[in-house]
Design a protein around this nucleic acid. Structure first.
Lengths: 141, 141
DNA sequence: ATATTAGATTAGATATATTCTAATTATTCG
DNA sequence: CGAATAATTAGAATATATCTAATCTAATAT
């Protein structure tokens, strides 16, 4: 039944439901820990069909463009991906670069005067600091 | 007089005011367009002392850690840097990856319940969409 | 059903971005 | 001064992401 859900959301976005694309989507829905492209590539290939690195990147790009997946860029590290489920913000750890979900809450839009002729598609709130693990590690020194 | 300002802010952060480090800081204050590390490297070397790529990256890292400079990660592209002047948010163009400043306004903090044991150092608001140039370009098609 | 076309995928090469290494130089401090 | 620490260097190495050109697949038209 999740299978049909994925298939439908792909097709609704005008994307064919290929084995490789489906696998990326399914992997993201089962691994909520914001995996990198390399982890996704490894993960989907560990299971079944041989998928190439290029295809994994292509599909991630397509899924992001279609709005089914979001990407979180992390300074100096691989980007991380996330199946868009319920709305949420993100937390990025300064030390280990891990990305975690944060409860969503509404953020006021910028004044239209400050927008100029820009077209704003979305607005992301990103918290930075130390994750639980890294905070504990620092405290114990 | 800007020279002393830079020197003081470096020393206040426990960083020696070396020629290379100063140059990075000065370059960032004169170029508000959010340059990449490569552009900064090129820029400071075009002027005067030979500085190496590694040093440029090292200094950028130190300056970010000291809170004098901020870095904006952009998906699939080089990170961009910004001397922290007055507070502001950022806008990232989906198409060309350019980063622009947006007027600052206060953003409500998350509920402490949702923070857990995380330590939040800062909170960034990032707008995404099409910059003025790219929006115009798209409209004309 | 075949042919045509557009959409996807592939392996590997390439490009881009960043960090590491080990040696060297500069600065601070006792 | 001399020792210890901080900073810099060139270039190699790594990590990350995209490109290429050939091939395969699926949808549509004939």
């Amino acid at each position: 039944m999740k299978a049909e859900t994925i298939q439908r959301s792909l097709e609704d976005s005008g994307l064919r439901c290929t084995a490789q694309r489906y696998a990326v989507m399914a992997f993201l829905m089962e691994h909520k820990g914001h995996p990198t492209a390399a982890e996704i590539f490894e993960g989907v290939n560990r299971l079944d069909p041989r998928s190439s690195r290029a295809t994994t990147y292509n599909n991630l790009r397509d899924l992001v463009k279609a709005g089914l997946v979001s990407e979180v860029a992390v300074e100096g590290r691989a980007g991380r991906f996330d199946a868009k489920g319920t709305r949420h913000h993100h937390f990025i750890c300064d030390r280990c670069g891990s990305v975690e979900d944060m409860d969503w809450y509404n953020v006021p839009k910028p004044a239209s005067r400050s927008l100029g002729k820009r077209v704003v598609r979305e607005c992301q709130l990103i918290f930075r600091g130390l994750c639980t693990k890294c905070a504990a590690r620092r405290a114990s020194r």
